[in-house]
């Protein structure tokens, strides 16, 4: 079972991963975006990590809800409300349970992903974070490792797509040939989830 501390470690691992990969995210965002995805995500997840360290919420749902709220208020780009909605809706779906299992987490993240699709209007194949999130959530029913792999494959598979949402969509065919930065950061989130579960060894 996964408790509040597991979720806090997930967010801490995500913050560390975003820190490590910030330059790469910004580099991916340069040809087809406005070259701020790395620094925006870094600012958001640092705020999440610091807040959770200072005052750790008592339940898994509360960890994700607070993380989502902080991302909305601190990121400063479209990824703030999008990731914020993902985590907040997932947190609300988990409710007040003190512990949840992997399948419940998968259901909660599916609800979060659906909310992101409604908010941004993106569907699979539009070259957005949805292209990593949907396969990852599908695979999370199997294992954390499968979810990480599916997210990474989904992110890589955005390269040949033409963007249909967000700033990159203004570029039309010129958006083809670049991996989507949002799908890439979504893959980091699922890699961090696997990291958190590895330190949980034996509980799964």
């Amino acid at each position: 079972m996964l408790d509040a501390d597991f979720f806090r470690r997930w967010m801490t691992a995500a913050a560390a991963s975003v820190d490590r990969e910030a330059d790469r995210l910004t580099a991916l965002d340069s040809p087809i975006g406005d070259a701020d995805h790395g620094s925006n995500m870094q600012r958001g997840f640092r705020a999440v990590r610091d807040a959770l360290d200072k005052e750790p919420p008592a339940t898994p749902g509360a960890v994700l809800t607070q993380a989502g709220r902080l991302l909305i208020s601190t990121v400063g780009g479209a990824s703030g409300p999008l990731y914020g909605t993902l985590l907040r809706r997932a947190g609300k779906t988990l409710g007040d349970a003190a512990e949840v299992d992997r399948r419940q987490l998968a259901e909660a993240l599916r609800a979060g992903t659906d909310a992101v699709m409604r908010l941004g209007g993106a569907a699979p194949g539009d070259k957005t974070m949805i292209d990593a999130l949907v396969p990852a959530v599908d695979a999370l029913g199997d294992s954390f490792a499968a979810a990480r792999d599916a997210a990474e494959e989904g992110a890589v598979a955005t390269t040949p797509l033409q963007a249909r949402k967000g700033r990159a969509s203004y570029l039309g065919e010129r958006s083809i040939g670049h991996q989507d930065p949002g799908a890439t950061s979504s893959a980091l989130l699922f890699a961090a989830l696997l990291d958190a579960s590895d330190t949980e060894a034996g509980h799964e």
């Binding site: 909305i72 479209a78 703030g80 409300p81 908010l119 700033r167």
Partner: peptide
Amino acid sequence: LGSAVLTVKALLAE
């Protein structure tokens, strides 16, 4: 546009 729209929508949902 973009994040301005999404941020307001997310705040309203809050």
